[in-house]
Simulated assay, not measured.
Amino acid sequence: MRRGPIVAVLVGVFLVGYALDQVTKALAVEHLDPANPPTFLGGWLSLKLIRNPGAAFSMGSGFTEVLSVLAIVALLFCAIYLAPRVTKVSHAAVLGMGMAGIAGNLTDRLLRAPGPLRGHVIDFFAVPRFAIFNVADIFLTSAAILVVLWTLVESRREAAREKAATEAAGDS
């Protein structure tokens, strides 16, 4: 397949995801009152603004600089190593999703208080008995789930091909 559609999908998904993350975070900071979060869907979802120095579930809050450096390395790895090797449009979309998620939260760590590499990530989607998260987290999680599902499906396909090849060799 030509690289043009693959690059277009990867860049397009990345830009849309990154922009959606940054716009929703700006709106959350501007309009949400942390003391009075609005609730929706019978309390299943609320918009509770927090500034998260850590990773998921606020774990690693003492390692914000390390998380920032890991995000930089991950984004560079995706752009320099993975992107040139993508051969399917669907894989380009998933890589774009992952990169948008990484870049969205990295932007917060680089540009928000208390300072570069130590910035707190804006989170605002709250589900009862779960983490408070943002659009970047949704993109990252969705990309990770798709990678796992594709890996499982591909391993089953490979096993079926091997079985068929073994049976065909036995019939000869």
Rank of each mutant, 00 (worst) to 15 (best):
L82M: 08
T87C: 13
T107F: 12
T141N: 14
V148K: 13
A92Y: 09
F130V: 12
A165P: 06
D123F: 05
V147T: 13
P116F: 10
L111G: 07
F133L: 07
G96Q: 02
A131Y: 07
V121W: 05
A144F: 07
T87S: 15
R112I: 11
V69I: 13
E158S: 15
G119C: 03
T107P: 01
V86T: 09
L67S: 00
M99P: 00
P84E: 06
A160N: 09
A131Q: 07
F77R: 08
A159P: 13
F125V: 08
A83Q: 04
T166W: 15
I145Y: 12
L149A: 09
F63G: 08
L152P: 04
T166Q: 15
D108L: 00
L82T: 05
A74G: 12
L140H: 01
R85I: 04
L110R: 13
V153Y: 14
A169F: 08
A126K: 06
F125G: 03
A74Y: 03
D123P: 02
A168C: 10
V94H: 01
A169K: 11
I138L: 13
T151A: 10
L152S: 11
A83R: 03
R129G: 14
G115L: 04
A160H: 14
R85T: 07
N105I: 05
W150C: 13
R157W: 13
M99F: 05
K88D: 14
T141V: 12
F63E: 11
N105P: 02
G115V: 00
C78S: 10
F77G: 03
C78V: 11
A126R: 12
G101T: 08
V121S: 02
Y81D: 13
L67P: 04
L106C: 05
E158C: 12
I102W: 01
L111K: 10
A100C: 06
R129F: 08
H120I: 07
T151F: 15
A92G: 08
A168V: 09
R109V: 01
L95C: 06
V148R: 14
T64C: 05
